[in-house]
Design a protein around this nucleic acid. Sequence first.
DNA 1: CTAGAACCTCAACAAAGGTTAAGGTCAAGC
DNA 2: GCTTGACCTTAACCTTTGTTGAGGTTCTAG
Lengths: 153, 153
Amino acid sequence: MAEKGALQRYLSVGEVAKRCGIAVSAVHFYERKGLISSIRTDGNQRRFHRGVLRKLAIIKVAQKTGIPLSEIGAALDKLPRNTVPTVKDWEDLSSQWRDDLNERIDQLTRLRDQLGQCIGCGCLSISACPLYNPNDALGGDGPGARLLELEDE
Amino acid sequence: MAEKGALQRYLSVGEVAKRCGIAVSAVHFYERKGLISSIRTDGNQRRFHRGVLRKLAIIKVAQKTGIPLSEIGAALDKLPRNTVPTVKDWEDLSSQWRDDLNERIDQLTRLRDQLGQCIGCGCLSISACPLYNPNDALGGDGPGARLLELEDE
DNA sequence: CTAGAACCTCAACAAAGGTTAAGGTCAAGC
DNA sequence: GCTTGACCTTAACCTTTGTTGAGGTTCTAG
């Protein structure tokens, strides 16, 4: 733990995992999926450039917003390779993801408000209940009617 | 389509599926998972009580809030069996789920705001960045440090 | 009565996001 | 120079939420 100073330019998979608070298997997984990359030592062990830490941080943040790994990977692919992502890169990504986040927050908020309106009104039995037909559910590709058609009670 | 009147007390799986806007296979699935139940005809076909429609409506709403089926099932289990869920039942469920929703909305909102704060600040390389340690991430059961410990750049 | 639509079961597959195990190698401290 | 912990690969497994298909039965309309 005392002699890492000068040559600490590359990180082993275990170090990366510990620093990011994720499992080694997850690091392997992300590499298999092409989200991150590494070089190998003579002994075939992975060595990661420090930039991978920032990428993993980005991955974790994006996952919390609900963005699937495939999409995260696509976004990371657009970053200049072989360098640590710059602040500008991060800006671009995060502003895009912020839009996604806002949209999801809006959706959940709408849902919550509709839930509130329906409490006590018994409207779950009425076909006009907004919860049966929230703004996004009647997209237009489904087969015919989407609404529940309860006609009694 | 014209002679359903009097005996329309039970619904076939296809009717249920169509009315709820879900696939027959999904209805089967929910039954296998114990979320709904049915009786059988002499010919071994499912017949559903009308109450299943309200249950399925509840399931769909709850799923949109991000609640897993297992939890929805547990909540439904607490409802009085063999009847259509009452307005009171629905009130209880929806107010609980509204709390869940609020919590998730709060989380996403915090995340979004932190994302905003971090844009342009480059703090993804600084261990004090709130995105590295959002309110809920340092729960206390993980192995040691959770923060990224980037000490350079 | 018969054809076709709707139903039945059971098993396999899917995709996302990983984890676990088996069997073997590498590297670092004593 | 040996032991031990970290690492390697491949493959299988896991959970969730269903869908698809095969092979067979039932129901309903004409």
